[in-house]
Design a protein around this nucleic acid. Structure first.
Lengths: 237, 237
DNA sequence: CGGAAAGTTGACTTGATTCAACACTGGTGG
DNA sequence: CCACCAGTGTTGAATCAAGTCAACTTTCCG
Protein backbone atom coordinates (compact mmCIF):
# COMPACT_ATOMS: atom_id res chain seq x y z
CA UNK A 1 0.00 0.00 0.00
CA UNK A 2 1.26 3.41 -0.94
CA UNK A 3 2.51 5.17 2.14
CA UNK A 4 1.17 8.43 0.92
CA UNK A 5 -2.24 7.08 0.16
CA UNK A 6 -3.96 7.64 3.43
CA UNK A 7 -2.65 11.07 4.09
CA UNK A 8 -3.64 11.90 0.58
CA UNK A 9 -7.15 10.74 1.17
CA UNK A 10 -7.99 12.98 4.06
CA UNK A 11 -11.53 13.81 3.11
CA UNK A 12 -14.19 15.88 4.65
CA UNK A 13 -17.50 17.55 4.25
CA UNK A 14 -16.77 21.13 3.26
CA UNK A 15 -18.69 24.17 4.41
CA UNK A 16 -19.66 24.74 0.83
CA UNK A 17 -21.52 22.05 -0.98
CA UNK A 18 -19.03 20.56 -3.38
CA UNK A 19 -20.11 20.44 -7.02
CA UNK A 20 -20.52 16.69 -6.88
CA UNK A 21 -22.07 16.55 -3.44
CA UNK A 22 -20.82 14.12 -0.82
CA UNK A 23 -17.24 13.63 0.25
CA UNK A 24 -14.23 14.77 -1.66
CA UNK A 25 -10.54 14.14 -1.69
CA UNK A 26 -9.11 17.50 -1.03
CA UNK A 27 -5.34 17.36 -0.85
CA UNK A 28 -3.24 17.91 -3.91
CA UNK A 29 -0.14 15.90 -4.75
CA UNK A 30 2.02 18.79 -3.66
CA UNK A 31 0.27 19.10 -0.30
CA UNK A 32 0.60 15.36 0.23
CA UNK A 33 4.34 15.61 -0.24
CA UNK A 34 4.61 18.58 2.08
CA UNK A 35 2.73 16.73 4.80
CA UNK A 36 4.84 13.62 4.44
CA UNK A 37 8.00 15.69 4.81
CA UNK A 38 7.06 16.53 8.37
CA UNK A 39 5.07 13.36 9.13
CA UNK A 40 6.19 9.99 10.36
CA UNK A 41 4.32 6.78 9.75
CA UNK A 42 3.78 4.72 12.91
CA UNK A 43 2.32 1.27 13.39
CA UNK A 44 1.02 0.27 16.79
CA UNK A 45 -0.50 -2.93 18.18
CA UNK A 46 -3.98 -3.05 19.69
CA UNK A 47 -4.29 -1.71 23.25
CA UNK A 48 -1.22 0.46 22.91
CA UNK A 49 -1.64 3.89 24.48
CA UNK A 50 -0.84 6.61 21.97
CA UNK A 51 -0.76 9.40 24.49
CA UNK A 52 -2.10 10.17 27.92
CA UNK A 53 -4.35 12.98 29.09
CA UNK A 54 -2.31 15.77 30.65
CA UNK A 55 0.94 14.92 28.93
CA UNK A 56 2.71 17.50 26.84
CA UNK A 57 1.02 17.81 23.44
CA UNK A 58 3.83 17.48 20.91
CA UNK A 59 2.11 15.80 17.98
CA UNK A 60 -1.02 15.66 15.97
CA UNK A 61 -1.90 12.27 14.51
CA UNK A 62 -3.93 11.23 11.52
CA UNK A 63 -5.46 7.78 11.59
CA UNK A 64 -4.61 5.81 8.47
CA UNK A 65 -5.81 2.36 9.46
CA UNK A 66 -7.56 0.87 12.45
CA UNK A 67 -9.76 2.17 15.21
CA UNK A 68 -8.74 4.31 18.15
CA UNK A 69 -10.57 5.43 21.27
CA UNK A 70 -10.25 8.73 23.06
CA UNK A 71 -11.32 8.75 26.69
CA UNK A 72 -11.08 10.33 30.10
CA UNK A 73 -11.01 8.50 33.39
CA UNK A 74 -13.37 10.19 35.77
CA UNK A 75 -13.01 10.54 39.51
CA UNK A 76 -15.89 8.19 40.15
CA UNK A 77 -14.00 5.37 38.49
CA UNK A 78 -16.01 5.52 35.29
CA UNK A 79 -14.49 6.02 31.90
CA UNK A 80 -16.03 8.52 29.53
CA UNK A 81 -15.29 7.61 25.92
CA UNK A 82 -15.06 10.98 24.20
CA UNK A 83 -14.84 9.53 20.72
CA UNK A 84 -13.96 6.60 18.56
CA UNK A 85 -11.62 7.60 15.74
CA UNK A 86 -11.49 5.97 12.34
CA UNK A 87 -9.29 6.23 9.27
CA UNK A 88 -9.01 9.86 8.12
CA UNK A 89 -9.71 11.24 11.57
CA UNK A 90 -7.33 13.53 13.38
CA UNK A 91 -6.20 13.03 16.94
CA UNK A 92 -4.32 15.32 19.23
CA UNK A 93 -6.84 17.63 20.85
CA UNK A 94 -4.98 19.68 23.41
CA UNK A 95 -5.55 22.56 25.77
CA UNK A 96 -2.80 24.89 26.92
CA UNK A 97 -0.20 22.55 25.51
CA UNK A 98 -1.49 19.36 27.09
CA UNK A 99 -3.63 16.61 25.69
CA UNK A 100 -7.13 16.57 27.15
CA UNK A 101 -7.92 12.90 26.58
CA UNK A 102 -6.05 9.64 26.68
CA UNK A 103 -5.95 7.95 23.31
CA UNK A 104 -5.52 4.23 22.84
CA UNK A 105 -5.49 1.82 19.91
CA UNK A 106 -8.55 -0.44 19.80
CA UNK A 107 -7.25 -2.48 16.88
CA UNK A 108 -3.75 -2.52 15.41
CA UNK A 109 -3.39 0.93 13.88
CA UNK A 110 -1.34 2.88 11.43
CA UNK A 111 -0.95 6.55 12.18
CA UNK A 112 0.82 9.52 10.72
CA UNK A 113 2.48 11.62 13.34
CA UNK A 114 3.10 15.33 12.80
CA UNK A 115 5.12 17.54 15.13
CA UNK A 116 2.72 20.22 16.27
CA UNK A 117 5.04 23.12 15.54
CA UNK A 118 5.89 21.96 12.05
CA UNK A 119 2.26 21.28 11.29
CA UNK A 120 1.02 24.65 12.48
CA UNK A 121 3.74 26.38 10.50
CA UNK A 122 2.81 24.42 7.41
CA UNK A 123 -0.88 25.11 7.87
CA UNK A 124 -0.36 28.82 8.30
CA UNK A 125 1.67 28.86 5.10
CA UNK A 126 -0.80 26.81 3.08
CA UNK A 127 -4.31 28.18 3.50
CA UNK A 128 -5.90 25.53 1.29
CA UNK A 129 -4.45 22.71 3.31
CA UNK A 130 -5.35 24.38 6.57
CA UNK A 131 -8.88 24.64 5.30
CA UNK A 132 -9.00 20.87 5.00
CA UNK A 133 -8.05 20.64 8.65
CA UNK A 134 -10.58 23.30 9.59
CA UNK A 135 -13.33 21.37 7.88
CA UNK A 136 -12.17 18.19 9.56
CA UNK A 137 -12.33 19.72 13.01
CA UNK A 138 -15.73 21.18 12.19
CA UNK A 139 -16.84 17.71 11.29
CA UNK A 140 -15.57 16.39 14.61
CA UNK A 141 -17.60 19.09 16.35
CA UNK A 142 -20.75 18.01 14.57
CA UNK A 143 -20.15 14.42 15.55
CA UNK A 144 -19.53 15.40 19.14
CA UNK A 145 -22.85 17.24 19.21
CA UNK A 146 -24.63 14.30 17.67
CA UNK A 147 -23.17 12.07 20.31
CA UNK A 148 -24.55 14.31 23.03
CA UNK A 149 -27.99 13.76 21.58
CA UNK A 150 -27.33 10.04 21.84
CA UNK A 151 -26.28 10.29 25.45
CA UNK A 152 -29.26 12.48 26.27
CA UNK A 153 -31.69 9.75 25.36
CA UNK A 154 -33.38 7.98 28.19
CA UNK A 155 -33.84 4.52 26.72
CA UNK A 156 -30.90 2.15 26.56
CA UNK A 157 -32.21 0.27 23.52
CA UNK A 158 -32.42 3.46 21.46
CA UNK A 159 -28.92 4.45 22.50
CA UNK A 160 -27.43 1.16 21.41
CA UNK A 161 -29.35 1.38 18.13
CA UNK A 162 -27.93 4.85 17.64
CA UNK A 163 -24.47 3.58 18.45
CA UNK A 164 -24.75 0.89 15.80
CA UNK A 165 -25.80 3.48 13.24
CA UNK A 166 -22.86 5.57 14.29
CA UNK A 167 -20.42 2.74 13.63
CA UNK A 168 -22.04 1.93 10.31
CA UNK A 169 -21.58 5.52 9.21
CA UNK A 170 -17.90 5.41 10.06
CA UNK A 171 -16.81 1.92 9.13
CA UNK A 172 -19.43 1.23 6.50
CA UNK A 173 -17.02 1.91 3.67
CA UNK A 174 -15.49 -1.49 4.41
CA UNK A 175 -17.18 -2.55 1.24
CA UNK A 176 -17.62 -6.25 1.88
CA UNK A 177 -20.99 -6.66 3.54
CA UNK A 178 -23.08 -3.58 4.09
CA UNK A 179 -25.14 -5.28 6.78
CA UNK A 180 -22.23 -6.45 8.87
CA UNK A 181 -21.13 -4.01 11.56
CA UNK A 182 -17.68 -4.58 13.02
CA UNK A 183 -17.46 -3.96 16.74
CA UNK A 184 -13.76 -3.95 17.57
CA UNK A 185 -14.34 -2.25 20.91
CA UNK A 186 -15.46 -3.94 24.12
CA UNK A 187 -18.99 -3.67 25.55
CA UNK A 188 -17.46 -1.61 28.27
CA UNK A 189 -16.20 0.88 25.69
CA UNK A 190 -19.62 0.99 24.08
CA UNK A 191 -21.13 1.63 27.49
CA UNK A 192 -18.68 4.47 28.11
CA UNK A 193 -19.52 5.99 24.77
CA UNK A 194 -23.28 5.64 25.09
CA UNK A 195 -23.42 6.77 28.69
CA UNK A 196 -24.68 3.45 29.97
CA UNK A 197 -23.37 0.71 32.19
CA UNK A 198 -21.95 -2.39 30.63
CA UNK A 199 -24.91 -4.36 31.93
CA UNK A 200 -27.39 -2.04 30.28
CA UNK A 201 -25.58 -2.37 26.97
CA UNK A 202 -25.76 -6.12 27.32
CA UNK A 203 -29.48 -6.06 28.08
CA UNK A 204 -30.25 -3.57 25.33
CA UNK A 205 -28.32 -5.68 22.83
CA UNK A 206 -30.30 -8.73 23.87
CA UNK A 207 -33.50 -6.74 23.43
CA UNK A 208 -32.50 -5.64 19.91
CA UNK A 209 -31.83 -9.26 19.08
CA UNK A 210 -35.12 -10.38 20.64
CA UNK A 211 -36.94 -7.85 18.45
CA UNK A 212 -35.25 -9.26 15.38
CA UNK A 213 -33.43 -6.06 14.41
CA UNK A 214 -29.88 -7.23 14.91
CA UNK A 215 -28.01 -10.48 15.31
CA UNK A 216 -24.79 -10.38 17.30
CA UNK A 217 -22.24 -12.76 15.83
CA UNK A 218 -19.52 -13.28 18.35
CA UNK A 219 -18.61 -10.17 20.27
CA UNK A 220 -16.75 -8.45 17.51
CA UNK A 221 -19.49 -8.11 14.98
CA UNK A 222 -23.20 -7.62 14.47
CA UNK A 223 -25.49 -8.27 11.56
CA UNK A 224 -28.28 -5.83 10.79
CA UNK A 225 -31.42 -7.79 10.05
CA UNK A 226 -33.94 -4.97 9.74
CA UNK A 227 -32.23 -1.74 8.82
CA UNK A 228 -35.35 0.40 8.32
CA UNK A 229 -36.68 -0.42 11.77
CA UNK A 230 -33.25 0.07 13.32
CA UNK A 231 -32.99 3.47 11.68
CA UNK A 232 -36.43 4.43 12.91
CA UNK A 233 -35.49 3.37 16.41
CA UNK A 234 -32.18 5.22 16.26
CA UNK A 235 -33.77 8.44 15.05
CA UNK A 236 -36.89 8.13 17.18
CA UNK A 237 -35.73 10.88 19.44
CA UNK B 1 -18.12 51.24 21.60
CA UNK B 2 -15.79 50.71 18.70
CA UNK B 3 -17.48 48.66 16.05
CA UNK B 4 -14.28 46.88 15.27
CA UNK B 5 -13.54 46.03 18.84
CA UNK B 6 -15.31 42.73 19.16
CA UNK B 7 -14.17 41.28 15.91
CA UNK B 8 -10.72 42.38 16.87
CA UNK B 9 -10.93 40.60 20.14
CA UNK B 10 -11.67 37.14 18.85
CA UNK B 11 -9.54 35.22 21.28
CA UNK B 12 -8.81 31.64 21.80
CA UNK B 13 -6.63 29.09 23.41
CA UNK B 14 -4.03 28.23 20.83
CA UNK B 15 -2.58 24.78 20.26
CA UNK B 16 0.74 26.13 21.35
CA UNK B 17 1.04 27.66 24.75
CA UNK B 18 1.32 31.39 24.17
CA UNK B 19 4.32 33.12 25.75
CA UNK B 20 2.13 34.79 28.35
CA UNK B 21 -0.17 31.81 28.97
CA UNK B 22 -3.93 32.16 28.95
CA UNK B 23 -5.97 33.90 26.32
CA UNK B 24 -4.62 36.23 23.72
CA UNK B 25 -5.93 38.69 21.24
CA UNK B 26 -4.79 37.27 17.98
CA UNK B 27 -6.02 39.41 15.13
CA UNK B 28 -3.88 42.19 13.77
CA UNK B 29 -5.23 45.58 12.80
CA UNK B 30 -4.95 44.61 9.17
CA UNK B 31 -6.90 41.39 9.65
CA UNK B 32 -9.59 43.26 11.55
CA UNK B 33 -10.07 45.59 8.63
CA UNK B 34 -10.20 42.70 6.18
CA UNK B 35 -12.87 40.97 8.21
CA UNK B 36 -14.96 44.09 8.57
CA UNK B 37 -14.88 44.61 4.82
CA UNK B 38 -16.87 41.43 4.30
CA UNK B 39 -18.76 41.49 7.61
CA UNK B 40 -21.97 43.22 8.56
CA UNK B 41 -22.86 44.22 12.09
CA UNK B 42 -26.34 43.07 13.11
CA UNK B 43 -28.32 43.81 16.24
CA UNK B 44 -31.18 41.54 17.20
CA UNK B 45 -33.70 41.54 20.03
CA UNK B 46 -34.01 38.66 22.50
CA UNK B 47 -35.88 35.60 21.24
CA UNK B 48 -35.18 36.42 17.63
CA UNK B 49 -34.28 33.37 15.57
CA UNK B 50 -30.99 33.89 13.77
CA UNK B 51 -31.34 30.87 11.53
CA UNK B 52 -33.18 27.60 11.43
CA UNK B 53 -31.86 24.06 11.22
CA UNK B 54 -31.98 22.81 7.65
CA UNK B 55 -32.01 26.20 6.00
CA UNK B 56 -29.36 27.13 3.47
CA UNK B 57 -26.11 28.03 5.25
CA UNK B 58 -25.10 31.37 3.78
CA UNK B 59 -23.36 33.05 6.67
CA UNK B 60 -21.05 32.55 9.56
CA UNK B 61 -21.67 34.75 12.58
CA UNK B 62 -19.43 35.95 15.35
CA UNK B 63 -21.10 36.88 18.61
CA UNK B 64 -20.06 40.33 19.77
CA UNK B 65 -22.50 40.92 22.60
CA UNK B 66 -25.19 38.89 24.29
CA UNK B 67 -25.98 35.21 24.64
CA UNK B 68 -27.27 32.87 21.98
CA UNK B 69 -28.54 29.31 22.12
CA UNK B 70 -28.09 26.62 19.52
CA UNK B 71 -30.59 23.78 19.63
CA UNK B 72 -32.36 20.99 17.82
CA UNK B 73 -35.99 20.06 18.24
CA UNK B 74 -36.21 16.31 18.56
CA UNK B 75 -38.98 14.07 17.35
CA UNK B 76 -40.10 13.28 20.87
CA UNK B 77 -40.96 16.92 21.48
CA UNK B 78 -37.86 17.61 23.54
CA UNK B 79 -35.36 20.25 22.72
CA UNK B 80 -31.68 19.46 22.84
CA UNK B 81 -29.61 22.57 23.52
CA UNK B 82 -26.39 21.90 21.64
CA UNK B 83 -24.60 24.94 23.02
CA UNK B 84 -24.87 28.35 24.56
CA UNK B 85 -22.75 30.85 22.68
CA UNK B 86 -21.11 33.89 24.21
CA UNK B 87 -19.18 36.91 22.96
CA UNK B 88 -16.26 35.81 20.76
CA UNK B 89 -17.94 32.56 19.80
CA UNK B 90 -18.63 31.60 16.23
CA UNK B 91 -21.98 30.36 14.96
CA UNK B 92 -22.92 28.82 11.67
CA UNK B 93 -22.15 25.13 11.90
CA UNK B 94 -23.43 23.55 8.71
CA UNK B 95 -23.39 20.22 6.93
CA UNK B 96 -23.68 19.88 3.18
CA UNK B 97 -24.66 23.50 2.87
CA UNK B 98 -27.37 23.50 5.51
CA UNK B 99 -27.31 24.60 9.12
CA UNK B 100 -27.52 21.70 11.54
CA UNK B 101 -29.00 23.57 14.50
CA UNK B 102 -31.47 26.35 15.03
CA UNK B 103 -29.89 29.38 16.63
CA UNK B 104 -31.80 31.93 18.65
CA UNK B 105 -30.94 35.03 20.64
CA UNK B 106 -31.36 34.53 24.38
CA UNK B 107 -30.64 38.16 25.21
CA UNK B 108 -30.46 41.11 22.83
CA UNK B 109 -27.39 40.38 20.75
CA UNK B 110 -24.90 42.02 18.46
CA UNK B 111 -23.45 39.81 15.79
CA UNK B 112 -21.07 40.11 12.90
CA UNK B 113 -22.32 38.36 9.84
CA UNK B 114 -19.91 37.04 7.21
CA UNK B 115 -20.95 35.61 3.86
CA UNK B 116 -19.66 32.07 3.85
CA UNK B 117 -18.01 32.31 0.46
CA UNK B 118 -16.23 35.55 1.19
CA UNK B 119 -15.09 34.26 4.54
CA UNK B 120 -13.72 31.00 3.21
CA UNK B 121 -11.90 32.86 0.45
CA UNK B 122 -10.43 35.26 2.98
CA UNK B 123 -9.40 32.45 5.31
CA UNK B 124 -7.71 30.49 2.55
CA UNK B 125 -5.76 33.61 1.60
CA UNK B 126 -4.74 34.51 5.14
CA UNK B 127 -3.35 31.48 6.92
CA UNK B 128 -2.75 33.33 10.17
CA UNK B 129 -6.34 34.44 10.39
CA UNK B 130 -7.63 31.05 9.44
CA UNK B 131 -5.56 29.64 12.24
CA UNK B 132 -7.50 31.78 14.68
CA UNK B 133 -10.68 30.22 13.38
CA UNK B 134 -9.19 26.75 13.52
CA UNK B 135 -8.26 27.25 17.13
CA UNK B 136 -11.71 28.60 17.85
CA UNK B 137 -13.44 25.58 16.38
CA UNK B 138 -11.04 23.32 18.26
CA UNK B 139 -12.08 25.12 21.40
CA UNK B 140 -15.74 24.53 20.58
CA UNK B 141 -14.98 20.84 20.16
CA UNK B 142 -13.38 20.69 23.58
CA UNK B 143 -16.39 22.38 25.12
CA UNK B 144 -18.75 20.02 23.37
CA UNK B 145 -16.86 17.06 24.78
CA UNK B 146 -16.91 18.56 28.23
CA UNK B 147 -20.64 19.02 27.96
CA UNK B 148 -21.04 15.36 27.14
CA UNK B 149 -19.32 14.53 30.40
CA UNK B 150 -21.86 16.76 32.12
CA UNK B 151 -24.79 15.03 30.45
CA UNK B 152 -23.33 11.63 31.24
CA UNK B 153 -23.62 12.25 34.94
CA UNK B 154 -26.39 10.49 36.70
CA UNK B 155 -27.14 12.98 39.50
CA UNK B 156 -29.17 16.07 38.73
CA UNK B 157 -27.58 18.17 41.47
CA UNK B 158 -24.10 17.56 40.10
CA UNK B 159 -25.22 18.44 36.61
CA UNK B 160 -26.69 21.75 37.69
CA UNK B 161 -23.55 22.51 39.67
CA UNK B 162 -21.50 21.75 36.56
CA UNK B 163 -23.77 23.95 34.52
CA UNK B 164 -23.22 26.86 36.88
CA UNK B 165 -19.46 26.42 36.62
CA UNK B 166 -19.82 26.32 32.88
CA UNK B 167 -21.61 29.68 32.84
CA UNK B 168 -19.09 31.20 35.22
CA UNK B 169 -16.28 30.20 32.90
CA UNK B 170 -17.98 31.85 29.96
CA UNK B 171 -19.57 34.95 31.42
CA UNK B 172 -17.27 35.38 34.36
CA UNK B 173 -15.36 38.15 32.67
CA UNK B 174 -18.36 40.41 33.42
CA UNK B 175 -16.04 41.94 35.94
CA UNK B 176 -18.52 43.30 38.44
CA UNK B 177 -19.14 40.55 40.97
CA UNK B 178 -17.21 37.35 40.58
CA UNK B 179 -19.73 35.43 42.69
CA UNK B 180 -22.80 36.50 40.76
CA UNK B 181 -23.75 34.20 37.90
CA UNK B 182 -26.10 35.62 35.29
CA UNK B 183 -28.67 33.15 34.01
CA UNK B 184 -30.27 34.78 30.99
CA UNK B 185 -31.70 31.48 29.76
CA UNK B 186 -34.85 29.80 31.02
CA UNK B 187 -34.91 26.78 33.28
CA UNK B 188 -36.21 24.89 30.35
CA UNK B 189 -33.10 25.84 28.37
CA UNK B 190 -30.90 24.76 31.24
CA UNK B 191 -32.77 21.47 31.35
CA UNK B 192 -32.24 20.99 27.63
CA UNK B 193 -28.56 21.69 27.99
CA UNK B 194 -28.02 19.52 31.03
CA UNK B 195 -30.11 16.65 29.76
CA UNK B 196 -32.69 16.93 32.50
CA UNK B 197 -36.33 17.83 32.73
CA UNK B 198 -37.31 21.29 33.82
CA UNK B 199 -38.70 19.85 37.05
CA UNK B 200 -35.42 18.14 37.87
CA UNK B 201 -33.54 21.38 37.32
CA UNK B 202 -35.94 23.08 39.68
CA UNK B 203 -35.52 20.44 42.33
CA UNK B 204 -31.75 20.30 41.94
CA UNK B 205 -31.55 24.08 42.23
CA UNK B 206 -33.61 23.95 45.41
CA UNK B 207 -31.27 21.29 46.73
CA UNK B 208 -28.19 23.40 45.99
CA UNK B 209 -29.81 26.26 47.84
CA UNK B 210 -30.80 24.02 50.74
CA UNK B 211 -27.18 22.91 51.05
CA UNK B 212 -26.06 26.52 51.20
CA UNK B 213 -23.93 26.43 48.07
CA UNK B 214 -25.92 28.83 45.94
CA UNK B 215 -28.60 31.45 46.38
CA UNK B 216 -30.93 32.03 43.45
CA UNK B 217 -31.83 35.70 43.21
CA UNK B 218 -34.80 36.02 40.94
CA UNK B 219 -34.65 33.69 37.98
CA UNK B 220 -32.02 35.54 36.03
CA UNK B 221 -29.17 35.27 38.43
CA UNK B 222 -27.54 33.17 41.10
CA UNK B 223 -25.07 33.96 43.84
CA UNK B 224 -22.33 31.49 44.66
CA UNK B 225 -22.08 31.18 48.43
CA UNK B 226 -19.56 28.38 48.73
CA UNK B 227 -17.40 28.19 45.63
CA UNK B 228 -14.98 25.50 46.84
CA UNK B 229 -17.77 23.10 47.69
CA UNK B 230 -19.57 23.87 44.44
CA UNK B 231 -16.40 23.18 42.49
CA UNK B 232 -15.89 19.92 44.31
CA UNK B 233 -19.46 18.91 43.54
CA UNK B 234 -19.12 19.92 39.90
CA UNK B 235 -15.89 18.00 39.43
CA UNK B 236 -16.91 15.05 41.58
CA UNK B 237 -17.35 12.88 38.53
C1' DC C 1 -55.32 44.55 36.14
C1' DG C 2 -55.46 40.22 33.67
C1' DG C 3 -53.79 36.54 31.18
C1' DA C 4 -50.09 33.68 29.58
C1' DA C 5 -45.67 31.96 30.24
C1' DA C 6 -42.36 30.28 33.46
C1' DG C 7 -41.34 27.96 37.53
C1' DT C 8 -42.28 25.20 41.79
C1' DT C 9 -43.88 21.37 44.46
C1' DG C 10 -45.98 16.78 45.39
C1' DA C 11 -47.31 11.84 44.48
C1' DC C 12 -46.49 8.21 41.74
C1' DT C 13 -44.15 5.45 38.00
C1' DT C 14 -40.45 3.66 35.52
C1' DG C 15 -36.30 1.98 33.86
C1' DA C 16 -31.34 2.11 34.37
C1' DT C 17 -28.05 1.19 38.09
C1' DT C 18 -26.21 -1.68 41.44
C1' DC C 19 -24.85 -5.90 43.45
C1' DA C 20 -24.16 -10.49 42.77
C1' DA C 21 -23.86 -14.93 40.68
C1' DC C 22 -22.87 -17.21 36.64
C1' DA C 23 -21.13 -18.26 31.55
C1' DC C 24 -18.17 -17.77 27.92
C1' DT C 25 -13.58 -16.99 25.58
C1' DG C 26 -8.84 -16.93 24.51
C1' DG C 27 -4.34 -17.67 25.99
C1' DT C 28 -0.71 -20.14 28.99
C1' DG C 29 1.68 -23.68 30.98
C1' DG C 30 1.81 -28.22 32.89
C1' DC D 1 -3.74 -31.62 24.49
C1' DC D 2 -6.23 -30.30 28.01
C1' DA D 3 -7.07 -27.71 32.32
C1' DC D 4 -6.98 -23.60 34.31
C1' DC D 5 -7.32 -18.73 34.76
C1' DA D 6 -8.28 -13.95 33.97
C1' DG D 7 -10.71 -10.98 31.31
C1' DT D 8 -15.11 -10.21 29.22
C1' DG D 9 -19.87 -10.65 28.91
C1' DT D 10 -24.65 -12.19 30.46
C1' DT D 11 -28.56 -12.63 33.48
C1' DG D 12 -31.41 -11.91 37.73
C1' DA D 13 -33.39 -9.26 41.74
C1' DA D 14 -33.77 -5.17 44.36
C1' DT D 15 -33.07 -0.32 44.67
C1' DC D 16 -33.36 4.45 43.76
C1' DA D 17 -33.28 8.70 41.37
C1' DA D 18 -35.15 11.13 37.59
C1' DG D 19 -39.28 11.21 34.73
C1' DT D 20 -44.17 11.95 34.37
C1' DC D 21 -48.52 13.87 35.49
C1' DA D 22 -50.93 17.18 37.82
C1' DA D 23 -52.03 21.05 40.74
C1' DC D 24 -50.50 25.26 42.08
C1' DT D 25 -47.69 29.82 42.40
C1' DT D 26 -45.00 33.48 40.62
C1' DT D 27 -43.51 36.57 37.23
C1' DC D 28 -43.71 39.14 33.21
C1' DC D 29 -45.81 42.15 29.91
C1' DG D 30 -49.46 44.18 27.45
Amino acid sequence: MNIAHHVASLTSIPFLTPPTGGETVVLTEHQRVELLRIGLRVRLPARMTIYRAGSRAQWVFAVAEGVVKSYRDLRNGKRDIAAFLFPRDLIGLSEKGHYVNTVQAVTPVTLYRFPLEDLTALLKRDGEMQFVFLVKVTDALRRSQRRTILVNRRDAVGRVAMFLMFIMNNLGRGGTDAHRVPLPMTRSDIAGFAGLTLESVSRASAELERRGLVKFEGRQSARILDLPRLVRLATAV
